[in-house]
């Protein structure tokens, strides 16, 4: 990452880490314009720390419910750990760890995102208009995460709840070790899908290159169809005609329950 404000000599002596990511002493820049309950600010010259301080100031201290961030410049760790209902529009792309650890916010990113977007989200909505990197929605616990474009590998790894909707294709190991929740992938999915999943459902509209260990196909029910109609309807994503549903085969639940012939499953 390029440091936004080059540290001064004073700062580099002791109060900075090697990569220049830590900014312990920063204060909110107070640059936002507020009009009719909506705050807008330009992040072009702000470091992630300053963007987050400004966001926190607006949402927690000023009680503003709608924020628009211009020129986010693919910065990392933007809009993280927000625990309040609010609506944030990020007009551009984010780097790693965008919109993570949130409970409540509705975040719209008009560009692309890097790895681990919406990681550990508790509730709320994150919508990404273009593509997302790998580890999308890692360990997510609730809410809706919508990627209109394609996603990389290990989407919804360790997912514990909520719904991940992908308009395009998904990479390899999608739903790796998934525990709960749902994934709706409208396009094709790469190899190793649902590997070692514990529970939850993965719906796929396109082809699946190969299933991972202990992932099996299950019958679609009317409830499944209703869910797909509803979720894709809310986010206005074209619904493929048919979906297939994949769940956990539950063969790996206990160490001692495998028949001798099944033991090679885990090799």
């Amino acid at each position: 990452m390029v440091a936004m404000n080059p540290p001064t000599d004073q700062e580099t002596r002791g109060r900075n880490d090697i990569r220049g990511l830590a900014e312990p002493d920063a204060e909110a820049p107070k640059v936002a314009r507020v009009e009719g309950g909506t705050a807008t600010f330009d992040a072009a010259d702000l470091s992630p720390r300053l963007v987050n301080l400004e966001l926190r100031r607006l949402i927690y201290a000023e009680g503003i419910r709608e924020v628009r961030i211009e020129n986010p410049g693919a910065k990392h760790s933007i809009a993280v750990g927000l625990l309040a209902r609010c609506r944030i529009t990020i007009n551009g792309s984010l780097g790693y760890f965008g919109a993570t650890l949130g409970d409540g916010p509705e975040i719209h990113i008009t560009g692309r995102v890097g790895w681990s977007v919406a990681e550990n989200m508790m509730s709320g909505v994150v919508v990404i208009d273009k593509n997302a990197g790998s580890l999308t929605g890692a360990a997510m616990r609730g809410g809706d995460l919508v990627v209109r474009g394609h996603v990389g590998a290990r989407t919804g790894i360790d997912q514990k709840g909520g719904t991940i909707v992908v308009g395009g294709n998904a990479g390899s190991m999608t739903g790796f070790m998934m525990q709960r929740g749902r994934q709706i992938i409208c396009g094709d999915v790469g190899p190793g899908m649902g590997d070692s999943m514990y529970d939850g459902e993965i719906y796929v509209g396109g082809t699946v290159a190969a299933l991972g260990v202990d992932c099996i196909e299950a019958e679609m029910t009317p409830e499944d169809e209703e869910l797909l109609d509803r979720k894709l309807g809310i986010y206005r994503i074209d619904r493929p005609d048919t979906f297939r549903k994949f769940v956990c085969g539950k063969q790996l639940y206990n160490y001692d329950n495998l028949e001798p012939s099944e033991r090679k499953l885990v090799l």
Binding site: M1, A22, P48, R49, G81, F97, W115, E119, L135, A138
Partner: peptide, 21 residues
Amino acid sequence: PDWLGPDDLSLKIQEVREATD
């Protein structure tokens, strides 16, 4: 689940620092 090597870890640390202010 959300980082692999030390380069990602430094960003993960940044994320948690930002979240905990």
